[in-house]
Design a binder for these strands. Structure first.
Length: 191
DNA sequence: TGAATGATTTACT
DNA sequence: GTAAATCATTCAA
């Protein structure tokens, strides 16, 4: 599971849309351990229409909507019949940067293009339509990419999960400027 | 049928 | 640093 999360970092995420094709390297990901992880939607083995994808075969996309305005993408990595998943938190834009910038209302090259769960989804045009897609086929799929230095840290945005929040299950590429910053904290100290 | 909550981001003070 | 935006999903009655 953690292996999968670590493995996900460095892969290339590609999404082909009618408008064009966008691709980027995953530079940040978090592991979510289904039943035992209070931070996971599938905590306690809860199986709902929303988490259904996580109970399916691995290699699929689990996409969900939160806070009334943001989408999140996960790689389903169900291994031991448990609803495990890896949340993709940040991506380094490679292809279709202009398209991403357009969708995000920013300028190409802006580091804020996809350095956050909600941001990357907007940049990649990932929404409900991508729910349950096979990540081995078009239009949304993964491919191998160059590996950088990996680092790990506690997860972000799941403080309510108690002890589980402290688990160092967040993997990211060290020194990559496209890795997201701490939540909430913003504006004041610019990078 | 109705109320509460969230794997976030952005804006303002 | 604090607060608001905003809606699908979930839990309670």
């Amino acid at each position: 599971m953690l292996t999968v999360a670590r493995d996900a970092v460095g892969k290339i995420l590609v999404h082909e849309t009618p408008e064009g094709r966008v691709a980027g390297r995953i530079v940040e990901a978090e592991a979510y351990r289904g039943p035992e992880d209070r931070a996971a939607h599938s905590y306690g083995g809860r199986r709902t229409p929303r988490t259904e994808a996580m109970f399916g075969p691995p290699g699929f996309a689990y996409v969900f909507f939160v806070y009334g305005m943001h989408w999140h993408v996960n790689l389903v990595t169900t291994r031991d019949l448990a609803p495990h998943a890896v949340l993709i938190r940040a991506v380094e834009p490679l292809e279709g940067v202009e398209l991403m910038a357009e969708r995000r209302g920013l300028t190409p090259g802006d580091r804020n293009l996809a350095n956050g769960p909600g941001k990357l989804c907007e940049a990649f045009a990932i929404d409900k339509r991508c729910y349950g897609l096979d990540l081995c086929k078009r239009p949304l799929f993964l491919s191998d990419g160059p590996r950088g230095k990996l680092a790990r840290s506690p997860r972000i945005g799941v403080d309510y999960a108690g002890e589980w929040a402290a688990r160092p299950w967040r993997f990211f590429e060290a020194g990559n400027p496209f890795v997201s910053r701490a939540p909430g904290g913003r504006g004041k100290k610019r990078t």
